[in-house]
Design a protein around this nucleic acid. Structure first.
Length: 103
DNA sequence: GAGATGACGGGCT
DNA sequence: AAGCCCGCCATCT
């Protein structure tokens, strides 16, 4: 089980209409400060996988792909499609949409 | 093995 | 609020 796989596994558990942050994923994997590595793992995702990568956002509740490419618009579209709303600053309300795994 | 990189986060100015 | 800087971790060159 590699680090990547663990990231994917967790992300796959996030239900539609909810989101998690990079740091949150890292925390869940037992590496509180590995947020960057989480992003690195997702960057290696390719179309065709079954990982809902768009449900992973940054700690500010926004999309980190702002100017990284067309995927940013796609991500926002997919989330709004699931019921996740964005404010005027292009950010979601984490206190409402953030998801935590069951205990 | 050393240095650089990146879908990050938190703290300080 | 907006920048800038530093620390973190897994990978790549």
């Amino acid at each position: 089980m590699t680090f990547y796989e663990r990231v994917y596994e967790f992300v796959r558990e996030v239900p539609p209409g909810h989101v998690v942050t990079y740091g949150q994923v890292a925390l869940h994997l037992g590496a509180p400060a590995a947020a960057r590595a989480v992003g690195y793992a997702l960057s290696s995702l390719r179309p065709g996988n079954d990982v809902p990568w768009w449900r992973v956002i940054n700690a500010q509740g926004g999309i980190s792909l702002k100017n990284r490419g067309p995927q940013a618009d796609l991500q926002r579209e997919l989330l709004e499609n699931e019921g996740v709303s964005f404010n005027g600053e292009g950010r979601t309300d984490l206190s409402v949409f953030r998801w935590w795994p069951r205990e």
